[in-house]
């Protein structure tokens, strides 16, 4: 056997007429791609998209960016900076705890499985999607205006922000819970509360805890920037350094921030991995 074996017909021959014809792409796919292209072009024009600054105006940026490669590490020893970092951490911890506790109740109300009735379920879902639609800094601006005190407004802003995220994720976990145990508790004469406590909670507890650590990671990042609008933490320092154009100092603070977030991220994720 030294010749290729498959076919007695040379492949270059005219193909027989009975070959299936490739079906045209579905209308959904075509429309989808057209919409995608249209939005992309529209958005690109809207924000005047261009990559030209990357090579043309790079000198303008280069000077400033170069200063970021020469950070002034000394600033990290200043008490204001150290306190800023600690404050960011405290705000994140408190907001995580408060937000997650409230979120657990909201999650129970926002799942068909555990909600007492449909109106409550609908309303909670709607409120949660409103909560989630406002970004962290918008909450920050609101609470800075409401309570003035920077640290407290930071805690409140992140709390609201967290409720939206954790309640949504947890309610989805509750939706996916096994129905068997619920039926069992019901059959044993359990109350609505007992049903939630003994049939639903044990099933979603690992996921819920994992979400709590997940928002803690988000909170560290968020509370670091909340200071920019006056809600406490290291962001306050960043804001001052930006307005004073002290880029070398800013660089050191930003790098330190990245390192801190990175380390806490890794620690939190190690815990999450053990939870699930």
């Amino acid at each position: 056997m030294s010749t290729p074996a498959t076919t007695d017909r040379a492949p270059t021959d005219q193909p027989p007429a009975d070959r299936p014809v490739k079906p045209p792409p579905s209308i959904g796919t075509v429309v989808g791609l057209l919409v995608f292209a249209a939005i992309s072009v529209y958005a690109a024009i809207g924000i005047e998209f261009t990559l030209r600054p990357l090579w043309e105006d790079v000198n303008r940026g280069r000077e400033i960016v170069a200063r970021y490669f020469d950070p002034n590490w000394a600033i990290l020893t200043r008490p204001a900076v150290r306190e800023g970092f600690l404050e960011t951490l405290y705000i994140a911890i408190i907001a995580t705890l408060v937000g997650c506790l409230i979120a657990l109740v909201c999650a129970m109300l926002a799942s068909k499985v555990s909600a007492p009735n449909t109106p409550v379920y609908r309303i909670t879902k709607f409120v949660l999607s409103v909560l989630r639609s406002l970004p962290d800094l918008a909450w920050g601006l609101l609470f800075v205006a409401f309570v003035v005190n920077p640290q407290l407004s930071g805690v409140l802003a992140l709390t609201m922000f967290n409720i939206g995220i954790v309640a949504k994720l947890t309610s989805e976990s509750i939706d996916a819970v096994e129905r068997g145990p619920i039926e069992a508790v019901e059959a044993a004469g359990g109350s609505r509360f007992q049903r939630g406590r003994y049939a639903v909670l044990p099933q979603v507890a690992p996921n819920y805890l994992s979400y709590c650590f997940y928002v803690f990671e988000i909170n560290i990042r968020a509370s670091a920037v909340l200071g920019m609008i006056g809600a406490g933490g290291i962001g306050t320092v960043i804001n001052i350094l930006v307005s004073r154009l002290q880029h070398e100092d800013l660089a050191a603070v930003v790098y330190a921030l990245v390192v801190v977030v990175f380390i806490l991220d890794q620690a939190s994720r190690a815990v999450r991995r053990r939870l699930t």
Partner: peptide, 12 residues
């Protein structure tokens, strides 16, 4: 830190 110095103020 990076994008405004290079691309200037604005949505880009």
């Amino acid at each position: 830190v990076f994008m405004i110095p290079i691309f200037g103020l604005g949505p880009l």
